[in-house]
């Protein structure tokens, strides 16, 4: 079946079989290697995408599930101002990651900041449960997200003032 959806801001169509997982389709058909199909159970966070702005594990989405929806991967998100806020916030906090969970942590931060401009430490840690990783230092993670939130808020304020 042909499934049409919006991928990283562009209209795309894919001839997909019912059993194709979105994670694999993004990697193999669209070359978006930032998505990694690791556990295939929706628990490791390495395949996370934004589906209509919400964090979702793409390994648990058959391609047909995104018909008519908007999908953003880390590649698409990396072109945004929010991405820059998050990277800078993480750097300010000195957040070090293992290199495998970065995309998940960035998108989880993006999804959270979309709902909550100033998330609490508890809210941040709950959101990061979507990307469990042994490299996570909870305190620095919280600082990184809060720093990103601050940068995003200031950028919006500057824009509003112009």
């Amino acid at each position: 079946m042909t499934i049409s959806f919006i991928l990283n801001g562009e209209d795309v169509s894919l001839n997909a079989r019912s059993y194709d997982r979105l994670a694999d389709a993004l990697r193999e058909h669209f070359g978006l290697l930032g998505v990694k199909a690791d556990c295939r159970r929706g628990v490791c966070g390495k395949c996370l995408i934004l589906l209509d702005g919400r964090l979702a594990p793409s390994c648990l989405l058959p391609v047909f599930r995104v018909r008519g929806r908007e999908v953003i991967t880390i590649e698409g998100f990396s072109q945004t101002d929010e991405f820059a806020d998050i990277m800078k916030g993480f750097a300010e906090a000195g957040l070090e990651t293992c290199g495998f969970c970065d995309s998940g942590k960035i998108l989880a931060t993006a999804a959270l900041l979309e709902r909550q401009a100033r998330p609490s430490a508890r809210e941040i840690l709950e959101e990061m449960a979507s990307v469990p990783c042994r490299c996570t230092d909870p305190e620095t993670m919280v600082k990184g997200v809060q720093a990103a939130a601050e940068l995003k808020a200031r950028r919006h304020y500057r824009r509003a003032s112009q």
């Binding site: 840690l125 709950e126 990061m128 993670m141």
Partner: peptide, 14 residues
């Protein structure tokens, strides 16, 4: 299927 890391939200202050 049962094995997993502790959720960061369940961790105590360290």
């Amino acid at each position: 299927l049962s094995y997993g890391l502790m959720s960061p939200a369940d961790l105590p202050p360290i």
